[in-house]
Simulated scan of single mutants.
Amino acid sequence: MRIGITGATGFIGGHLAALAHSRGHAVVAYSRGAHAVPAADELLQLPAKAPHALPETHLDALVHLSGESLMGLWTSEKRDRIWKSRVNFTESLVTHLGTWKAENRPKVLVCASGAGFYGNSGADAVDETSPQGQGFLADVCAGWEAAAHRAEALGMRVITSRTGMVLGRDGGAFPLLRRVFACGLGGRLGSGRQWMSWIHIDDAVQILLQAITTETVSGPLNLCAPEAVTNAEFTQKLAAALHRPAFFHAPAFALKLLLRGMADEMLLGGQRVIPLVAIKMGHAFAHPTLSGALASLV
């Protein structure tokens, strides 16, 4: 297959490009800059004034991973950038794909989303059949997915990957967490009872590529390991993997004061996500447990 990737210079995109290339697929990387993508067979520059206007080329699949980082203070301006870079950008991207020649247009569109779609689900397990939750992130994810599903009118199969925390040595949250915990400064956030859904980067990209090549897969796809853990469990297992104590505790009131809405939705709330579609697809998780995943990373 000929697979296009927006965000190919990022953490997940880079690993997906490498895996696809190793499996014999041709990778077309879309980039705003001149950043090298070693696994790409072709690198196409995005127009500076209209980055949604992907240069046309024949594609069998397009994986859309780019978007404004969620990290930082959620000011009104930050929230606006998050919404526009995901919902508005994807709407414009799909509209632009409609201008492509039918023979060049990808047959499948994979669009990133997030486990935040489910809101703060507490201890209740959620899967791809569960309804949308409440909160800013849930609204963003729902809008993002709706924008992607507009591509179905163009004859595309659409997959929306509801991604949890992706763990890898070279990107995502893990390198920072490792440094903090290695210094003995790790600890639980708030009560520690909030659920965390995570996945090892190797499993994440293998599931994405398998979904691309499996014609029966469409709609939401939970990109999470089968073992969700509480924040307290995550803290204990990461500290154990690094052979360091984790005595520190970040009180909920302090996180809310410092980080505003981001704390409630990303740090003090969570989801206990079941990757039902990946399991039914037959994916054999290389890292099904957090302890095993952390051992491979440290």
Rank of each mutant, 00 (worst) to 15 (best):
A112E: 09
A204Q: 11
A263V: 08
G10N: 08
P131E: 13
G164W: 09
Y118D: 02
V298C: 04
T90A: 00
P220Y: 08
G155A: 11
L44G: 05
H96V: 02
K237C: 03
R2A: 11
L290Q: 05
L223Q: 05
V166E: 04
K107M: 12
K49M: 03
R157H: 12
K78V: 01
I5D: 04
L154N: 07
R178P: 12
T99K: 14
L268N: 09
V140F: 14
W195G: 03
C141S: 06
T213F: 01
R150Q: 09
A286Y: 02
C111P: 01
A182P: 14
A148K: 08
L167P: 13
N120K: 11
V87L: 07
V126E: 04
A211T: 10
S69P: 06
L208T: 04
G186C: 13
Q194C: 10
S31W: 00
L209K: 11
H149L: 14
T160R: 07
P220G: 01
R260L: 00
M156N: 00
I5S: 00
G261F: 07
L54T: 05
E265F: 12
G119N: 11
P51Q: 03
A225P: 12
G192L: 12
G116K: 12
L93V: 04
T6V: 10
A20P: 06
A50D: 05
T163H: 02
A232T: 03
F89N: 06
N104Q: 15
A8M: 01
I207A: 05
I82Y: 00
G282D: 04
V217L: 15
Q132Y: 05
H21N: 10
R2H: 05
I3Q: 07
T95K: 12
V140Q: 09
V126I: 07
S92C: 02
S85W: 00
G184S: 10
P251E: 06
G24T: 14
T75M: 15
V37G: 01
R86T: 08
W195D: 01
R81T: 00
W83D: 03
P55H: 09
A125G: 06
G192I: 09
G4A: 13
V110P: 03
C141R: 01
A8W: 01
F285Y: 13
C183R: 13
L276A: 15
F89S: 08
A123C: 03
A211V: 11
K49H: 11
A102E: 15
G33W: 04
R23K: 12
L185Y: 13
G7F: 03
G190W: 08
G14I: 06
M266W: 00
F234N: 05
G114Q: 03
V108Y: 12
D139M: 04
L109Q: 13
S296N: 09
F234K: 01
L44N: 01
S31T: 15
A284L: 09
D203L: 11
F181P: 02
R81W: 04
R188C: 06
S130D: 03
R32M: 04
P226H: 10
L97A: 08
L167D: 10
P131I: 11
W74D: 12
A293F: 05
G143W: 07
H287F: 15
A278E: 05
G172K: 06
H243D: 00
F253L: 15
L177P: 02
V205Y: 15
L209E: 06
G190K: 13
C224Y: 07
T289R: 11
L46V: 02
E68F: 07
A123I: 00
E56G: 08
V229S: 04
H200R: 09
H283R: 15
G119F: 06
V217G: 10
